[in-house]
Simulated scan of single mutants.
Amino acid sequence: MVLGLYDQQGLLRFSGRDLADCLAYAELFALADGSFSLESLVHEPSPEDRWVQPASS
């Protein structure tokens, strides 16, 4: 799993392989709790994403 750490403006500040990496980044740059969010950067494709229908001619 890859996590992204986003600041309050919604900018990706860091991506890491686990929660500990992201929290270490936040601690290193003295980001206060509540001033960032963590989100998964891995998109699980839905069945619609996997099967693209060719365009009719």
Rank of each mutant, 00 (worst) to 15 (best):
M1C: 10
M1L: 12
V2A: 04
L3C: 09
G4M: 05
G4N: 05
G4E: 05
L5C: 07
Y6P: 04
Y6I: 04
Y6L: 14
D7T: 03
D7I: 02
D7Y: 02
D7S: 05
Q8C: 08
Q8K: 13
Q9W: 12
Q9C: 09
Q9M: 06
G10S: 03
G10A: 02
L11E: 15
L11I: 12
L11W: 13
L12V: 06
L12S: 06
L12Y: 02
R13F: 03
R13M: 15
F14K: 01
F14Q: 02
S15Y: 11
G16V: 02
G16W: 05
R17P: 02
R17L: 13
R17S: 14
R17V: 09
D18P: 03
D18L: 03
D18T: 05
L19V: 04
L19D: 06
L19R: 12
A20E: 14
A20M: 09
A20D: 13
A20G: 06
D21N: 11
D21R: 10
D21M: 11
D21K: 09
D21A: 15
C22Y: 00
L23N: 04
L23D: 02
L23I: 03
A24V: 00
A24Y: 00
A24D: 02
Y25Q: 00
Y25L: 00
A26D: 01
A26Y: 01
A26K: 01
A26H: 01
E27M: 02
E27F: 04
L28H: 10
L28F: 06
L28E: 09
F29L: 09
F29S: 03
F29R: 07
A30E: 15
L31W: 11
L31F: 05
A32P: 06
D33T: 08
D33S: 11
D33N: 07
S35N: 09
S35R: 07
F36M: 01
F36N: 01
F36P: 00
S37P: 01
S37L: 05
L38M: 05
L38E: 04
E39W: 08
E39Q: 13
E39P: 01
E39G: 09
L41S: 09
L41E: 14
V42P: 00
H43N: 13
H43E: 15
H43C: 13
H43V: 15
H43R: 15
E44L: 14
E44W: 10
P45M: 12
P45F: 12
P45R: 07
P45W: 11
P45S: 09
P45I: 07
P45E: 07
S46I: 06
S46F: 06
S46L: 09
P47R: 12
E48Q: 08
D49T: 08
D49L: 07
R50C: 15
R50S: 11
W51M: 08
W51L: 14
Q53K: 10
Q53T: 07
Q53V: 08
P54K: 00
P54W: 00
P54I: 00
P54F: 01
P54T: 00
A55R: 05
A55G: 04
S56L: 12
S57I: 03
S57W: 06
S57E: 04
S57H: 07
